[in-house]
């Protein structure tokens, strides 16, 4: 199944996503698509720790902070994939060291569409950052809007859409078969 998961931070999205990806593994390979770019030594250590944890769960880590469509043709179509997260992917695609691509989502959506077309067993995680009263600068607001665009495109293509709130699950679309 193609499964989209969103919700607040530290609410249990990644834990659920890992369980679902493991349960969808047919034996053709279990892949964790890492999207974070470390910004300091703390990050490097945290990423190494998470990676070791996942290896214990049987995941192979693929580093793809940008250009997610590079997954295509390299990995088996019947593998089980976990992409965590669209939040980081959108950030990396939009904010480069030397420029900001305000229209990055227009490039990213077709890439994600192709990835979802190719891989049937995939879990994609994002973050719900849309219900606060904070007023952001124009670029941050553009980032929120862009992430929402890719969330909605992915959710539309997924079989199942789940909201996680403090480990509680709401299924907004499809069914959750575990």
């Amino acid at each position: 199944m193609r499964i989209f998961i969103s919700g607040g931070c530290k609410n249990g999205k990644s834990t659920l996503a890992k369980q679902l990806a493991i349960s969808q593994n047919t034996g053709a390979g279990l892949y964790y698509v890492a999207t974070m770019i470390p910004t300091g030594e703390d990050d490097v250590r945290r990423i190494a720790r998470h990676r070791a944890d996942r290896e214990g769960d049987g995941f192979t880590t693929i580093e793809h902070p940008r250009n997610i469509s590079r997954l295509l043709s390299v990995y088996p179509a019947d593998g089980s994939f976990l992409v965590d997260s669209l939040t980081a992917l959108m950030q990396n695609e939009m904010f480069r060291a030397d420029f900001h691509d305000r229209d990055a989502y227009r490039r990213v959506i077709p890439q994600l569409t192709r990835v979802l077309d190719a891989f049937e067993n995939i879990v994609i995680v994002s973050d719900f950052i849309y219900a606060d009263a904070q007023r952001y600068d124009a670029l941050t607001e553009r980032y929120r809007e862009s992430l929402a665009h890719i969330d909605r495109a992915v959710a539309a293509q997924c079989d199942t859409v789940i909201e996680v709130a403090y480990s509680c699950i709401t299924v907004h679309k499809g069914e959750l078969i575990t």
């Binding site: 607040g8 849309y130 219900a131 606060d132 009263a133 904070q134 007023r135």
Partner: peptide, 21 residues
């Protein structure tokens, strides 16, 4: 638009807005 699910805003106008909404 739901604006009710974030940190309490520092700005008093925005804080009042959030509650009135």
């Amino acid at each position: 638009t739901d604006i009710s699910a974030g940190v309490v805003p520092l700005d008093s106008i925005i804080r009042a807005w959030r509650e009135e909404v």
